[in-house]
Design a protein around this nucleic acid. Structure first.
Length: 426
RNA sequence: GGAGAGAUGUCUGAGUGGCUUAAGGAGCACGCUUGGAAAGCGUGUGUACUAUAAUGGUACCGAGGGUUCGAAUCCCUCUCUCUCCGCCA
Protein backbone atom coordinates (compact mmCIF):
# COMPACT_ATOMS: atom_id res chain seq x y z
CA UNK A 1 0.00 0.00 0.00
CA UNK A 2 1.28 3.43 -0.84
CA UNK A 3 1.70 6.12 1.78
CA UNK A 4 -1.29 8.47 2.10
CA UNK A 5 0.88 11.47 2.83
CA UNK A 6 3.10 10.71 -0.15
CA UNK A 7 0.01 10.43 -2.31
CA UNK A 8 -0.63 14.12 -1.69
CA UNK A 9 2.91 15.41 -1.50
CA UNK A 10 4.65 13.29 -4.12
CA UNK A 11 1.87 12.43 -6.51
CA UNK A 12 3.93 12.86 -9.68
CA UNK A 13 6.89 10.85 -8.43
CA UNK A 14 4.63 7.96 -7.34
CA UNK A 15 2.69 8.05 -10.58
CA UNK A 16 5.90 7.81 -12.56
CA UNK A 17 7.11 4.86 -10.46
CA UNK A 18 3.82 3.02 -10.90
CA UNK A 19 3.46 3.85 -14.59
CA UNK A 20 6.79 2.13 -15.29
CA UNK A 21 4.99 -1.17 -14.83
CA UNK A 22 3.25 -0.47 -18.11
CA UNK A 23 -0.19 -1.70 -19.10
CA UNK A 24 -3.17 0.10 -17.69
CA UNK A 25 -2.05 0.71 -14.09
CA UNK A 26 -2.66 4.47 -14.34
CA UNK A 27 -5.26 4.42 -17.13
CA UNK A 28 -8.54 6.33 -16.69
CA UNK A 29 -10.82 4.38 -14.37
CA UNK A 30 -7.91 2.59 -12.67
CA UNK A 31 -7.57 2.69 -8.89
CA UNK A 32 -4.67 5.08 -9.28
CA UNK A 33 -6.67 7.44 -11.47
CA UNK A 34 -9.45 7.59 -8.87
CA UNK A 35 -7.48 7.66 -5.69
CA UNK A 36 -6.46 11.32 -5.49
CA UNK A 37 -10.03 12.48 -5.93
CA UNK A 38 -11.31 9.94 -3.42
CA UNK A 39 -8.75 11.17 -0.91
CA UNK A 40 -9.91 14.77 -1.19
CA UNK A 41 -13.57 13.81 -0.93
CA UNK A 42 -12.89 11.54 2.03
CA UNK A 43 -11.06 14.29 3.91
CA UNK A 44 -13.70 16.92 3.24
CA UNK A 45 -16.47 14.70 4.54
CA UNK A 46 -14.43 13.67 7.54
CA UNK A 47 -13.60 17.25 8.47
CA UNK A 48 -17.24 18.26 8.26
CA UNK A 49 -18.38 15.23 10.20
CA UNK A 50 -15.84 15.86 12.92
CA UNK A 51 -16.89 19.48 13.29
CA UNK A 52 -20.46 18.31 13.86
CA UNK A 53 -19.32 15.72 16.34
CA UNK A 54 -17.33 18.31 18.25
CA UNK A 55 -20.49 20.41 18.49
CA UNK A 56 -22.47 17.43 19.73
CA UNK A 57 -19.87 16.60 22.37
CA UNK A 58 -19.87 20.17 23.64
CA UNK A 59 -23.65 20.40 23.83
CA UNK A 60 -24.03 16.97 25.46
CA UNK A 61 -21.59 17.95 28.11
CA UNK A 62 -23.53 21.15 28.78
CA UNK A 63 -26.75 19.17 29.12
CA UNK A 64 -25.07 16.81 31.51
CA UNK A 65 -23.89 19.72 33.65
CA UNK A 66 -27.35 21.27 33.78
CA UNK A 67 -29.00 18.00 34.68
CA UNK A 68 -26.55 17.26 37.43
CA UNK A 69 -27.36 20.59 39.05
CA UNK A 70 -31.09 20.00 38.58
CA UNK A 71 -31.65 22.70 35.98
CA UNK A 72 -34.07 22.26 33.12
CA UNK A 73 -32.43 21.26 29.79
CA UNK A 74 -35.49 20.53 27.68
CA UNK A 75 -34.72 23.26 25.12
CA UNK A 76 -31.13 22.13 24.64
CA UNK A 77 -32.17 18.51 24.25
CA UNK A 78 -34.74 19.44 21.64
CA UNK A 79 -32.16 21.45 19.70
CA UNK A 80 -29.72 18.56 19.82
CA UNK A 81 -32.08 16.24 17.98
CA UNK A 82 -31.30 17.97 14.71
CA UNK A 83 -27.54 18.11 15.31
CA UNK A 84 -27.52 14.45 16.19
CA UNK A 85 -29.33 13.55 13.00
CA UNK A 86 -26.78 15.50 10.93
CA UNK A 87 -23.91 13.83 12.70
CA UNK A 88 -25.27 10.42 11.83
CA UNK A 89 -25.78 11.41 8.22
CA UNK A 90 -22.35 12.96 7.77
CA UNK A 91 -20.62 10.20 9.66
CA UNK A 92 -22.13 7.59 7.35
CA UNK A 93 -21.04 9.54 4.28
CA UNK A 94 -17.55 10.04 5.70
CA UNK A 95 -17.18 6.36 6.55
CA UNK A 96 -18.33 5.28 3.09
CA UNK A 97 -15.90 7.68 1.45
CA UNK A 98 -13.07 6.46 3.65
CA UNK A 99 -13.91 2.83 2.84
CA UNK A 100 -13.99 3.57 -0.88
CA UNK A 101 -10.66 5.35 -0.66
CA UNK A 102 -9.09 2.54 1.36
CA UNK A 103 -10.38 -0.05 -1.12
CA UNK A 104 -8.83 1.85 -4.02
CA UNK A 105 -5.52 2.10 -2.18
CA UNK A 106 -5.40 -1.68 -1.85
CA UNK A 107 -5.66 -2.06 -5.64
CA UNK A 108 -2.62 0.08 -6.39
CA UNK A 109 0.64 -1.81 -7.01
CA UNK A 110 3.88 -1.03 -5.24
CA UNK A 111 5.82 1.82 -6.89
CA UNK A 112 8.94 0.30 -8.43
CA UNK A 113 12.39 0.84 -7.04
CA UNK A 114 14.49 3.24 -9.14
CA UNK A 115 17.04 0.53 -9.86
CA UNK A 116 14.56 -1.69 -11.73
CA UNK A 117 15.52 -1.89 -15.43
CA UNK A 118 12.93 -1.00 -18.06
CA UNK A 119 11.43 -3.78 -20.12
CA UNK A 120 8.44 -4.88 -22.16
CA UNK A 121 8.31 -8.52 -21.11
CA UNK A 122 10.19 -11.20 -19.22
CA UNK A 123 12.60 -11.32 -22.16
CA UNK A 124 13.96 -7.99 -20.96
CA UNK A 125 14.98 -9.29 -17.54
CA UNK A 126 18.67 -8.71 -16.96
CA UNK A 127 21.04 -11.59 -16.34
CA UNK A 128 23.42 -10.65 -13.52
CA UNK A 129 25.57 -13.76 -13.22
CA UNK A 130 25.82 -17.48 -13.89
CA UNK A 131 27.10 -20.27 -11.69
CA UNK A 132 28.07 -23.85 -12.51
CA UNK A 133 28.61 -25.81 -15.68
CA UNK A 134 25.55 -26.64 -17.76
CA UNK A 135 25.27 -30.13 -19.15
CA UNK A 136 24.36 -30.03 -22.81
CA UNK A 137 24.02 -33.71 -23.67
CA UNK A 138 20.64 -35.27 -24.38
CA UNK A 139 18.67 -35.66 -21.16
CA UNK A 140 15.07 -36.88 -21.10
CA UNK A 141 12.43 -34.68 -19.45
CA UNK A 142 11.99 -35.29 -15.72
CA UNK A 143 8.53 -36.81 -16.23
CA UNK A 144 10.06 -39.59 -18.32
CA UNK A 145 12.92 -40.10 -15.87
CA UNK A 146 10.49 -40.22 -12.95
CA UNK A 147 8.01 -42.50 -14.66
CA UNK A 148 10.74 -44.92 -15.78
CA UNK A 149 12.08 -45.15 -12.24
CA UNK A 150 8.57 -45.52 -10.83
CA UNK A 151 8.97 -42.53 -8.53
CA UNK A 152 6.54 -40.05 -10.17
CA UNK A 153 2.94 -41.22 -10.63
CA UNK A 154 0.99 -38.67 -12.65
CA UNK A 155 -1.95 -40.98 -13.27
CA UNK A 156 -2.49 -41.49 -9.55
CA UNK A 157 -2.33 -37.76 -8.82
CA UNK A 158 -4.90 -36.98 -11.50
CA UNK A 159 -7.21 -39.72 -10.26
CA UNK A 160 -6.99 -38.61 -6.64
CA UNK A 161 -7.34 -34.88 -7.12
CA UNK A 162 -7.25 -33.78 -10.76
CA UNK A 163 -4.79 -32.31 -13.19
CA UNK A 164 -1.62 -30.70 -11.84
CA UNK A 165 -1.46 -33.11 -8.92
CA UNK A 166 1.17 -35.82 -8.71
CA UNK A 167 2.01 -38.69 -6.40
CA UNK A 168 5.70 -38.92 -5.57
CA UNK A 169 6.91 -42.35 -4.50
CA UNK A 170 9.82 -44.13 -2.93
CA UNK A 171 13.24 -42.51 -3.23
CA UNK A 172 11.80 -39.33 -4.74
CA UNK A 173 9.39 -38.93 -1.84
CA UNK A 174 12.32 -39.44 0.45
CA UNK A 175 14.25 -36.81 -1.51
CA UNK A 176 11.37 -34.36 -1.23
CA UNK A 177 11.61 -34.73 2.55
CA UNK A 178 15.42 -34.63 2.51
CA UNK A 179 15.37 -31.37 0.57
CA UNK A 180 13.11 -29.71 3.15
CA UNK A 181 15.37 -30.82 5.97
CA UNK A 182 18.55 -29.86 4.21
CA UNK A 183 17.34 -26.39 3.27
CA UNK A 184 15.91 -25.61 6.70
CA UNK A 185 19.09 -26.79 8.39
CA UNK A 186 21.23 -24.67 6.10
CA UNK A 187 19.23 -21.49 6.74
CA UNK A 188 18.69 -22.06 10.45
CA UNK A 189 22.21 -23.26 11.31
CA UNK A 190 24.44 -21.44 8.81
CA UNK A 191 22.49 -18.35 7.78
CA UNK A 192 21.08 -17.37 11.16
CA UNK A 193 17.36 -17.71 10.50
CA UNK A 194 14.82 -18.62 13.15
CA UNK A 195 12.76 -21.55 11.94
CA UNK A 196 9.00 -21.28 12.30
CA UNK A 197 6.16 -23.63 11.54
CA UNK A 198 2.89 -21.95 10.64
CA UNK A 199 -0.70 -22.65 9.54
CA UNK A 200 -1.25 -23.40 5.85
CA UNK A 201 -4.59 -21.61 6.05
CA UNK A 202 -4.97 -17.87 6.44
CA UNK A 203 -7.91 -15.50 6.81
CA UNK A 204 -8.72 -12.56 4.53
CA UNK A 205 -7.08 -9.98 6.78
CA UNK A 206 -3.82 -11.91 6.59
CA UNK A 207 -4.13 -12.43 2.83
CA UNK A 208 -4.70 -8.68 2.42
CA UNK A 209 -1.69 -7.85 4.56
CA UNK A 210 0.78 -9.39 2.14
CA UNK A 211 -1.16 -8.34 -0.99
CA UNK A 212 -2.81 -11.54 -2.26
CA UNK A 213 -6.20 -9.95 -1.61
CA UNK A 214 -8.28 -8.21 -2.75
CA UNK A 215 -6.89 -8.32 -6.30
CA UNK A 216 -5.83 -11.92 -6.71
CA UNK A 217 -8.66 -13.88 -5.14
CA UNK A 218 -8.91 -16.01 -8.31
CA UNK A 219 -5.45 -17.45 -7.70
CA UNK A 220 -6.38 -18.71 -4.23
CA UNK A 221 -8.26 -21.74 -2.94
CA UNK A 222 -11.00 -20.50 -0.63
CA UNK A 223 -12.58 -22.75 1.96
CA UNK A 224 -16.31 -22.94 1.48
CA UNK A 225 -18.40 -20.99 3.97
CA UNK A 226 -15.41 -19.74 5.92
CA UNK A 227 -13.16 -16.71 5.93
CA UNK A 228 -10.21 -18.96 5.18
CA UNK A 229 -7.86 -19.60 2.26
CA UNK A 230 -5.09 -22.09 1.54
CA UNK A 231 -1.81 -20.20 1.50
CA UNK A 232 -0.04 -19.80 -1.87
CA UNK A 233 3.30 -19.31 -0.09
CA UNK A 234 4.72 -19.23 3.45
CA UNK A 235 5.29 -15.52 2.92
CA UNK A 236 1.67 -14.99 3.90
CA UNK A 237 1.59 -16.46 7.43
CA UNK A 238 5.25 -15.78 8.25
CA UNK A 239 5.24 -12.08 7.33
CA UNK A 240 1.88 -11.62 9.05
CA UNK A 241 3.32 -13.07 12.24
CA UNK A 242 3.99 -9.40 13.03
CA UNK A 243 0.67 -8.06 11.77
CA UNK A 244 -0.50 -5.06 13.86
CA UNK A 245 2.66 -5.14 15.97
CA UNK A 246 4.95 -2.27 16.82
CA UNK A 247 8.47 -3.69 16.96
CA UNK A 248 11.45 -2.25 18.71
CA UNK A 249 14.19 -1.08 16.33
CA UNK A 250 16.54 -3.35 18.25
CA UNK A 251 14.41 -6.37 17.27
CA UNK A 252 15.27 -5.80 13.60
CA UNK A 253 16.17 -7.39 11.36
CA UNK A 254 13.96 -10.40 12.05
CA UNK A 255 14.75 -13.40 9.85
CA UNK A 256 12.58 -16.49 9.58
CA UNK A 257 12.78 -19.62 7.51
CA UNK A 258 9.77 -21.87 7.18
CA UNK A 259 8.64 -24.93 5.34
CA UNK A 260 5.03 -24.98 4.13
CA UNK A 261 2.98 -26.58 1.43
CA UNK A 262 1.76 -24.01 -1.12
CA UNK A 263 -1.55 -24.06 -2.97
CA UNK A 264 -2.24 -22.19 -6.20
CA UNK A 265 -5.20 -22.37 -8.52
CA UNK A 266 -3.04 -21.42 -11.51
CA UNK A 267 -6.02 -19.65 -13.03
CA UNK A 268 -4.97 -18.30 -16.42
CA UNK A 269 -1.99 -20.56 -16.89
CA UNK A 270 -3.87 -23.27 -18.77
CA UNK A 271 -1.60 -24.99 -21.22
CA UNK A 272 1.64 -23.91 -19.57
CA UNK A 273 3.88 -26.66 -18.20
CA UNK A 274 1.10 -29.20 -18.33
CA UNK A 275 3.45 -32.14 -18.17
CA UNK A 276 5.61 -32.90 -15.21
CA UNK A 277 5.72 -31.29 -11.79
CA UNK A 278 6.96 -27.82 -12.65
CA UNK A 279 3.54 -26.22 -12.23
CA UNK A 280 1.38 -27.98 -9.64
CA UNK A 281 -1.63 -26.90 -7.62
CA UNK A 282 0.18 -28.06 -4.49
CA UNK A 283 3.91 -27.95 -3.90
CA UNK A 284 6.40 -27.71 -1.07
CA UNK A 285 8.63 -24.73 -0.47
CA UNK A 286 11.13 -23.44 2.06
CA UNK A 287 10.73 -19.70 2.36
CA UNK A 288 12.96 -16.95 3.76
CA UNK A 289 11.35 -13.85 5.27
CA UNK A 290 12.99 -10.68 6.56
CA UNK A 291 11.38 -7.91 8.58
CA UNK A 292 13.74 -4.96 8.48
CA UNK A 293 14.06 -1.19 8.15
CA UNK A 294 13.69 0.75 4.87
CA UNK A 295 17.35 1.78 5.02
CA UNK A 296 18.52 -1.82 5.04
CA UNK A 297 16.40 -3.07 2.18
CA UNK A 298 19.07 -3.28 -0.53
CA UNK A 299 21.76 -4.88 1.59
CA UNK A 300 19.30 -7.30 3.18
CA UNK A 301 17.90 -8.34 -0.20
CA UNK A 302 21.42 -8.97 -1.38
CA UNK A 303 22.06 -11.20 1.63
CA UNK A 304 18.79 -13.04 1.18
CA UNK A 305 19.62 -13.66 -2.46
CA UNK A 306 22.97 -15.07 -1.37
CA UNK A 307 21.24 -17.44 1.05
CA UNK A 308 19.03 -18.78 -1.74
CA UNK A 309 21.99 -19.10 -4.13
CA UNK A 310 23.86 -21.05 -1.46
CA UNK A 311 21.25 -23.81 -1.66
CA UNK A 312 21.75 -24.29 -5.39
CA UNK A 313 25.51 -24.21 -5.01
CA UNK A 314 25.44 -26.78 -2.21
CA UNK A 315 23.33 -29.03 -4.44
CA UNK A 316 25.72 -28.30 -7.34
CA UNK A 317 22.93 -27.21 -9.65
CA UNK A 318 23.88 -24.70 -12.37
CA UNK A 319 21.83 -21.52 -12.21
CA UNK A 320 21.73 -17.89 -13.22
CA UNK A 321 20.64 -14.82 -11.30
CA UNK A 322 18.20 -12.50 -13.04
CA UNK A 323 17.01 -9.01 -12.22
CA UNK A 324 13.36 -8.63 -13.19
CA UNK A 325 12.44 -5.72 -15.43
CA UNK A 326 9.60 -3.25 -14.93
CA UNK A 327 6.92 -5.33 -16.64
CA UNK A 328 7.70 -8.64 -14.91
CA UNK A 329 7.67 -7.56 -11.25
CA UNK A 330 4.78 -8.71 -9.06
CA UNK A 331 2.08 -6.42 -7.71
CA UNK A 332 3.43 -6.15 -4.15
CA UNK A 333 7.12 -6.07 -4.97
CA UNK A 334 9.30 -3.04 -5.60
CA UNK A 335 12.41 -4.98 -6.64
CA UNK A 336 12.82 -8.67 -7.52
CA UNK A 337 15.64 -11.06 -8.38
CA UNK A 338 14.89 -14.52 -9.69
CA UNK A 339 17.13 -17.56 -9.56
CA UNK A 340 16.78 -19.84 -12.56
CA UNK A 341 18.07 -23.39 -12.52
CA UNK A 342 19.38 -25.16 -15.61
CA UNK A 343 17.05 -27.81 -17.01
CA UNK A 344 18.96 -29.80 -19.65
CA UNK A 345 15.85 -31.45 -21.13
CA UNK A 346 14.40 -28.04 -21.97
CA UNK A 347 17.79 -26.58 -22.78
CA UNK A 348 16.95 -23.47 -20.77
CA UNK A 349 16.93 -21.94 -17.31
CA UNK A 350 13.70 -22.12 -15.27
CA UNK A 351 12.66 -20.09 -12.25
CA UNK A 352 13.30 -21.86 -8.96
CA UNK A 353 13.42 -18.92 -6.55
CA UNK A 354 12.10 -15.38 -6.46
CA UNK A 355 13.61 -12.92 -3.99
CA UNK A 356 11.84 -9.62 -3.49
CA UNK A 357 11.82 -6.46 -1.49
CA UNK A 358 8.39 -5.07 -0.74
CA UNK A 359 9.70 -1.91 0.84
CA UNK A 360 7.08 -0.64 3.29
CA UNK A 361 4.20 -1.77 1.06
CA UNK A 362 3.30 -4.83 3.11
CA UNK A 363 4.25 -3.12 6.35
CA UNK A 364 1.52 -0.55 5.75
CA UNK A 365 -1.08 -3.09 4.68
CA UNK A 366 -0.40 -5.52 7.50
CA UNK A 367 0.27 -2.91 10.19
CA UNK A 368 3.82 -4.16 10.79
CA UNK A 369 5.69 -1.23 12.34
CA UNK A 370 8.82 -0.41 14.28
CA UNK A 371 9.92 2.57 16.34
CA UNK A 372 12.50 4.76 14.64
CA UNK A 373 15.19 6.67 16.54
CA UNK A 374 12.71 9.39 17.38
CA UNK A 375 10.41 6.77 18.90
CA UNK A 376 7.83 7.19 16.17
CA UNK A 377 6.12 4.13 14.68
CA UNK A 378 7.05 3.59 11.01
CA UNK A 379 5.95 0.85 8.63
CA UNK A 380 8.60 -1.87 8.59
CA UNK A 381 10.16 -3.11 5.37
CA UNK A 382 9.63 -6.73 4.37
CA UNK A 383 11.52 -9.07 2.09
CA UNK A 384 11.15 -12.66 1.12
CA UNK A 385 12.53 -15.28 -1.17
CA UNK A 386 12.21 -18.96 -1.94
CA UNK A 387 14.99 -20.96 -0.51
CA UNK A 388 13.96 -22.99 -2.57
CA UNK A 389 10.86 -24.38 -4.26
CA UNK A 390 11.21 -28.08 -3.42
CA UNK A 391 9.32 -29.60 -6.34
CA UNK A 392 11.33 -27.71 -8.91
CA UNK A 393 14.53 -28.60 -7.08
CA UNK A 394 13.53 -32.24 -7.41
CA UNK A 395 13.02 -31.68 -11.15
CA UNK A 396 16.44 -30.07 -11.45
CA UNK A 397 18.12 -32.95 -9.61
CA UNK A 398 16.39 -35.62 -11.68
CA UNK A 399 17.58 -33.99 -14.89
CA UNK A 400 21.02 -32.72 -13.92
CA UNK A 401 21.95 -35.90 -12.04
CA UNK A 402 20.44 -38.29 -14.60
CA UNK A 403 22.81 -40.94 -15.86
CA UNK A 404 22.77 -42.70 -19.24
CA UNK A 405 21.71 -46.02 -17.64
CA UNK A 406 18.47 -44.34 -16.51
CA UNK A 407 19.49 -43.94 -12.89
CA UNK A 408 19.80 -40.67 -11.00
CA UNK A 409 22.68 -40.04 -8.62
CA UNK A 410 21.99 -38.17 -5.40
CA UNK A 411 23.71 -34.86 -4.56
CA UNK A 412 26.36 -35.39 -1.88
CA UNK A 413 24.81 -33.00 0.65
CA UNK A 414 21.51 -34.89 0.48
CA UNK A 415 22.95 -38.37 1.00
CA UNK A 416 23.09 -38.07 4.81
CA UNK A 417 19.43 -37.07 4.74
CA UNK A 418 18.57 -40.16 2.67
CA UNK A 419 20.11 -42.83 4.80
CA UNK A 420 23.32 -42.80 2.82
CA UNK A 421 21.60 -43.60 -0.49
CA UNK A 422 23.81 -42.56 -3.42
CA UNK A 423 21.75 -43.35 -6.46
CA UNK A 424 18.13 -43.90 -7.46
CA UNK A 425 17.77 -46.81 -9.85
CA UNK A 426 15.14 -49.37 -10.82
C1' G B 1 -21.42 -29.86 18.40
C1' G B 2 -23.61 -28.70 23.86
C1' A B 3 -23.20 -25.62 28.51
C1' G B 4 -20.92 -21.61 30.94
C1' A B 5 -17.46 -17.37 31.49
C1' G B 6 -14.90 -13.67 29.21
C1' A B 7 -12.56 -9.78 25.50
C1' U B 8 -10.65 -2.47 28.55
C1' G B 9 -4.02 1.00 27.15
C1' U B 10 2.91 -2.28 27.46
C1' C B 11 0.94 -5.47 31.56
C1' U B 12 -2.49 -5.87 35.67
C1' G B 13 -7.11 -4.09 36.86
C1' A B 14 -11.57 -0.71 38.10
C1' G B 15 -15.49 1.20 35.66
C1' U B 16 -23.80 -0.85 34.47
C1' G B 17 -25.89 6.23 31.00
C1' G B 18 -23.25 12.55 31.84
C1' C B 19 -16.45 16.26 35.77
C1' U B 20 -13.83 9.13 32.12
C1' U B 21 -10.03 14.48 28.11
C1' A B 22 -10.39 5.51 30.78
C1' A B 23 -9.42 5.40 38.11
C1' G B 24 -5.64 2.72 40.85
C1' G B 25 -1.28 -0.34 40.54
C1' A B 26 2.98 -2.38 37.89
C1' G B 27 6.48 -1.46 34.17
C1' C B 28 9.23 2.14 31.42
C1' A B 29 11.61 7.28 30.77
C1' C B 30 13.39 11.69 33.01
C1' G B 31 14.35 14.52 37.49
C1' C B 32 15.18 14.98 42.92
C1' U B 33 17.54 12.26 46.75
C1' U B 34 22.45 8.96 47.38
C1' G B 35 29.50 7.82 47.82
C1' G B 36 26.79 4.25 44.44
C1' A B 37 22.32 1.47 44.24
C1' A B 38 17.55 0.22 46.23
C1' A B 39 13.56 2.48 48.56
C1' G B 40 11.07 7.13 48.60
C1' C B 41 9.26 11.63 46.20
C1' G B 42 7.99 14.39 41.64
C1' U B 43 6.94 14.59 36.37
C1' G B 44 5.87 12.07 32.04
C1' U B 45 4.27 7.73 29.44
C1' G B 46 -1.04 4.65 23.40
C1' U B 47 -2.51 4.58 18.10
C1' A B 48 -4.61 6.78 13.81
C1' C B 49 -6.75 10.65 11.05
C1' U B 50 -7.20 15.87 10.70
C1' A B 51 -6.44 21.41 11.44
C1' U B 52 -3.23 25.56 12.52
C1' A B 53 1.52 30.40 13.03
C1' A B 54 0.54 28.05 17.81
C1' U B 55 -2.82 26.07 21.85
C1' G B 56 -6.29 22.18 19.13
C1' G B 57 -10.33 18.64 16.98
C1' U B 58 -12.19 13.61 15.97
C1' A B 59 -12.07 8.39 16.37
C1' C B 60 -10.45 3.97 18.91
C1' C B 61 -12.50 -0.06 25.61
C1' G B 62 -12.91 -7.59 20.32
C1' A B 63 -15.94 -6.28 15.26
C1' G B 64 -20.45 -4.33 13.13
C1' G B 65 -25.28 -2.33 13.83
C1' G B 66 -29.15 -0.09 17.18
C1' U B 67 -31.41 2.90 21.42
C1' U B 68 -30.29 7.99 23.49
C1' C B 69 -29.44 14.99 23.63
C1' G B 70 -25.20 11.84 25.38
C1' A B 71 -22.72 4.75 25.29
C1' A B 72 -16.66 1.40 27.63
C1' U B 73 -21.51 1.15 30.24
C1' C B 74 -28.18 -0.60 27.66
C1' C B 75 -30.07 -3.82 23.19
C1' C B 76 -29.07 -7.00 18.65
C1' U B 77 -25.71 -9.75 15.36
C1' C B 78 -20.94 -11.69 14.59
C1' U B 79 -15.75 -13.08 15.76
C1' C B 80 -12.25 -14.83 19.02
C1' U B 81 -10.37 -16.74 23.84
C1' C B 82 -10.90 -19.72 28.30
C1' U B 83 -13.37 -23.79 31.35
C1' C B 84 -16.32 -28.27 31.37
C1' C B 85 -18.74 -32.08 28.31
C1' G B 86 -18.92 -34.69 23.52
C1' C B 87 -15.94 -36.16 19.28
C1' C B 88 -11.06 -36.91 17.63
C1' A B 89 -4.94 -37.56 15.58
Amino acid sequence: MIDRQALRKEFDRLQAAIARRGGDVIAPGSAWARVAELDVRQRELKTESEAQQAERNRASKAIGMKKSTGEDATAEIAAMGEVSRRVKELDTLAKDAEAEFAAALLEIPNPLHDSVPDGESEDDNVELRRWGTRRTDDVPPHWDIGTDLGILDFEAGARLAGSRFTVIRGAAARMERALMQFMLDLHADKHGYEEVWVPAIANSRTMTGTGQLPKFADDLYKLEGEDAYLIPTAEVPVTNLYQDKILDASDLPIRHCAYTPCFRREAGSAGRDERGIIRQHQFDKVELVHITTPERVLSDLNELLGHAEAVLEALELPYRTMQLCTSDIGFSSQLTFDLEVWLPSQNCYREISSCSSFGQFQGRRAGIRYRDEGGKPQPAATLNGSGLAIGRTLVAILENYWQADGSVSIPKVLQPYMGGMQVISK
